[in-house]
Amino acid sequence: MSIGNSPESPEDDRNFPADDRDSIGRALQQARVAAGLTVEEVSASTRVRVPIVHAIEEDDFSRCGGDVYARGHVRTLARAVGLDPAPLVEQYDAAHGGRPAPTPAAPLFEAERIRPEPRRPNWTAAMVAAIVAVVGFVGFTMFNGTSGQAGPQSVAEGPAPVTKTTAPKPKPVKPDPKPVPSESAIAAVPADKVTVKLTATDDKSWISAKAHDGKLLFDGLLLAGESKTFQDDERIDLILGNAGPIELYVNGKKIEDSFEAGQVERLSYTKGDPQAG
């Protein structure tokens, strides 16, 4: 009898749960125990609150705040205890009506995006056209007056000296000076503060932002197309409930981390070159 191949090996139980595979909470709990981790240690590493970790291990997802956040918690906890999150997320989707569909942007934002801006009248072109018309009329009048007076005097007195009349040239219209490009609001962030800007690109996300002293700056939904900017003297702590659609700028620099839809991210940023905490 080979002890290493025994079906009761903790390594096999951790990666291939047998009778309990239909229970997500039991699979996470067994993997955590096999890894020698406490609930508090898992909570500290994932930043998922201790009561929520306990509830998920008891297959109670009511405290997660919805399917999107529950899927994100399952994925985060599975990685923390060394499990492949994909089968557990698929198991959750199968038990809760499938993967949640992305929420379309509100019609109000669609109407605002397609509304054309009113065209401004081109006063410069109108002034040039008026000047050309006046100069042409004056030249035509002076030419006709000179031709009418030269006819009767040419027989008795000889040819009259021809006086050349030069129509006044229109003053060149100076083009409007090119506007000096201004620095963007993000590029001009103050160096003595930490500035964070979040934009929900194609889906909504729950956002929580706190200052370094624990003061709550924002706690709520950021709808698709909306942006929020936060500043603090030392540090800003973020929780992204649905990190996938979030575009993030910190101290004028875009954060290139690729977040997955439904993923819960807890981040901290300070002054200078952004480094996630």
Rank of each mutant, 00 (worst) to 15 (best):
D192M: 00
W123P: 03
L83S: 05
E90V: 07
G98T: 09
P168H: 09
T229L: 04
P51D: 13
K204D: 04
R79P: 02
D22I: 04
T166R: 10
Y249M: 14
S205Y: 01
A133M: 11
V89C: 07
E57S: 01
D203P: 02
K171Y: 07
G151H: 08
G214E: 00
R113M: 13
K210S: 03
D257N: 02
N122K: 11
P245S: 04
D60E: 08
D237L: 05
L88Y: 04
E110Q: 13
D60K: 05
T103E: 09
S154R: 15
G252D: 08
A34T: 07
P190K: 05
L108I: 14
Y269A: 09
I186T: 08
G136A: 14
Y249S: 11
F143D: 15
Y92T: 00
R235T: 12
S184V: 05
T76C: 08
R99T: 04
I186R: 07
L198A: 04
L83T: 01
Q153G: 11
Y249Q: 15
A133I: 10
N251C: 00
A191G: 12
F143W: 09
C64H: 01
Q91A: 07
A224I: 12
I186M: 10
Y69V: 13
A200T: 00
E265K: 13
V194P: 01
D237E: 15
K171Q: 12
F218K: 10
G97W: 03
G272E: 07
R115K: 08
A150Y: 05
D176Q: 14
E110P: 06
I56M: 15
V155F: 00
G225E: 06
A70N: 01
D257E: 02
P177I: 00
D237G: 02
A95I: 05
D273M: 09
P172M: 08
A106P: 02
G72I: 14
V33C: 14
G214R: 03
P172K: 12
T270F: 06
P170N: 00
V53N: 06
D219H: 12
R63K: 15
V250Y: 01
H212W: 14
Q153A: 11
D192Y: 01
G72W: 00
S227H: 07
D213P: 02
A191Q: 06
G66D: 15
P102F: 04
P107K: 12
S258I: 15
V81M: 06
R63T: 08
Q29E: 10
E110T: 13
S258F: 15
E183R: 02
S154H: 14
L83C: 01
